[in-house]
Design a binder for these strands. Structure first.
Length: 556
DNA sequence: CAACTTGCAA
DNA sequence: TCGAGTGCAAGTTG
């Protein structure tokens, strides 16, 4: 069996695929299985993929046959394929293709859903209360539905395990000549992302989600797609800063001029061939009962492409409107779909399935993002804090642990260790940050800091006039934050992995030198447990986590 | 009327 | 539940 030893893949009956990154066939196997399995974790030695309902139906949609999946698994698997797994795959495949969704021939506010070759399916669907609510009329093998419920319907059907094929043709949108300027070139992985998104145009693919880490240039993937499609485009961004960033990038990197690219926000409501809007303005309304006034934006022009930046932040009502416009090409961009609620399925069904993701570690190897070392430093509570902690209700325990005064001394030690390196200090509680700012006499930026002062401090940080900057939660979203080599996290919120990833993203711009990400954690407290949770995401992404204690800093 | 501040929402 | 943040519109001011 020496021959099989060198095969990279281990297939388990629960659908987990483990891929050994050291085997020569690794790369080949990776691209083969990613057609029907999702990447779950990519630590350094073994990557983990999973075959699940969504990934299989996604494969169905790409016309990948059952036989192809079996052959691929056999080809790369070290051990025999568990028969129960193939049985499960077959079962899932069998559920695909029985439901077809079409537009009503005369009434465009309605949809027709046909049930094919499954006698009992009609009955099964009729008995579902959530579907009942959406059905207008029913005949022997068809349902009539409201066009507005299209996305909701697709989502409910996925949850019931009966995916529907949406046959509504994708509209082309109004044409727009757009070209990259010669000074700009897509990196290989950005190009792959664009290609993966577009797929084979004859199959009509043109919706989906691309996953890339912060700092890997998601904007260019968007711009590359616009160039390929040559059509008017609506871009949705999480906040105004991000929206303006898109506009800047588009104007400086493409042949489009300033008056062809506009901002649609609370401050400026201009609509142009390329319009960048915030999520906020879309979901704004006078009162809870009033309609969403700005949803018209979707129909204002014949958009050929809608780009959802930071797709994991999509507010619920935007999901709903997205379901109404399923005939327009949709590109979701995100650093991570890990959301503490489980909205990933919604992103996949309404915007589109995952088309591309690159393991962070790999981009790091190729030098596109910086090499980072994560260090967790344990520190101790003092006598008084210990006492307070012991008697405090759970709620305040976290805060006491987060605000341990020993963290201040540690910050000093770490700053001394990395003397001369651009450093940011991030934390959750203003009082603590302010105390450190005062103690160390360092500048601080919080939500209340006026924009011009922020810009001023950022600039000084960029041109190295100041070396250290203290930042509150504003750091999580601010786009124009300058690069740092060292980040010190004083406290994080409730173990949100997404937040951790965002913060790490701040120090991941490509640089020659190693970046360090320090997390300060109080020993023997709840904070330790949260830290484990937060740490998991990064470990799974392939980062090594080093654990030190405060003594390590004061010994020598 | 542009540039603030204030209050609300999710 | 809380703390900190954001964006929106309307009100206030020089």
């Amino acid at each position: 069996m020496k021959n099989n030893e060198s095969k990279p893949l281990i297939v388990q009956s629960d659908g987990t695929l483990i891929l050994d990154t050291h085997e020569p066939l690794f790369e080949e196997a990776r691209s083969a299985i990613s057609l029907f399995a999702d990447l779950e974790k990519s630590p350094e030695h073994f990557h983990q993929y999973r075959i699940n309902d969504l990934s299989l139906w996604n494969a169905c949609a790409m016309d990948i046959t059952l036989a192809h999946i079996e052959t691929t698994l056999k080809q790369y698997s070290r051990y025999p394929i568990p028969p129960s797994l193939m049985a499960k795959v077959e079962q899932r495949y069998d559920r695909y293709g029985h439901l077809k969704l079409e537009s009503h021939p005369t009434d465009e506010t309605q949809l027709i859903m046909k049930v094919l070759n499954k006698p009992h399916l009609m009955r099964e669907l009729q008995s579902q209360p959530k579907l009942r609510k959406l059905i207008i009329t029913e005949e022997t093998d068809t349902f009539r539905l409201n066009a507005l419920d299209r996305g909701l319907l697709k989502h409910e059907l996925i949850k019931l395990g009966w995916p529907v094929t949406d046959l509504a043709p994708l509209t082309q949108g109004d044409p727009l000549a757009i070209d990259l300027l010669p000074s700009t070139q897509l990196r290989p992985y950005q190009q792959s992302a664009v290609t993966a998104f577009l797929g084979d145009k004859q199959l009509g693919r043109g919706f989906g989600t691309v996953i890339l880490p912060c700092g890997a240039g998601k904007t260019l993937v968007g711009i590359g797609t616009m160039q390929a499609l040559q059509c008017e485009t609506l871009i949705l961004a999480a906040n105004i800063a991000a929206a303006r960033q898109w506009i800047r990038e588009i104007v400086t990197r493409t042949t489009l001029t300033e008056d062809q690219v506009s901002e649609y926000s609370g401050q400026s409501k201009v609509i142009a061939p390329v319009t960048v809007a915030t999520y906020q303005i879309l979901v704004w309304r006078k009162a809870k009962t009033e309609p969403f006034l700005h949803f018209n934006l979707f129909k204002e022009r014949k958009w050929g492409l809608i780009i959802y930046d930071e797709a994991h932040l999509l507010p619920a009502p935007v999901f709903r409107i997205t379901s109404e416009i399923q005939s327009v090409r949709r590109l979701g961009l995100t650093a991570t779909l890990v959301r503490e609620d489980n909205a990933e399925a919604e992103v996949f069904t309404l915007i589109g399935p995952k088309r591309f993701d690159a393991p962070w570690k790999e981009l790091e190897h190729q030098g596109w993002i910086a090499t980072a070392q994560c260090v967790e430093v344990k520190c101790d509570l003092n006598e008084k804090e210990h006492l307070e902690y012991a008697i405090a209700p759970n709620r305040s325990k976290i805060r006491i642990a987060s605000e341990a005064v020993s963290k201040i001394t540690l910050v000093k030690a770490i700053l001394a260790l990395h003397q001369g390196k651009p450093t940011i200090i991030i934390g959750q509680y203003l009082s603590q940050l302010q105390a450190i700012a005062k103690e160390l006499n360092l500048p601080i930026i919080t939500g209340k800091t006026p924009q011009d002062l922020r810009d001023d401090l950022y600039n000084q940080f960029r041109n190295k006039t100041i070396q250290t900057l203290i930042l509150s939660k504003v750091a999580n979203f601010s786009i124009d934050l300058p690069d740092a080599t060292i980040a010190i996290q004083l406290s994080g919120s409730f173990g949100s992995r997404q937040e951790e990833a965002q913060r790490l993203g701040r120090i991941l711009r490509p640089k020659e030198e190693m970046s360090y990400f320090y997390s300060l954690v109080s020993r023997f407290t709840l904070e330790e447990e949260f830290a484990i949770n937060r740490m998991r995401f990064l470990t799974e992404q392939g980062y090594t986590y080093q654990i030190l204690s405060q003594e390590d800093f004061f010994d020598d």
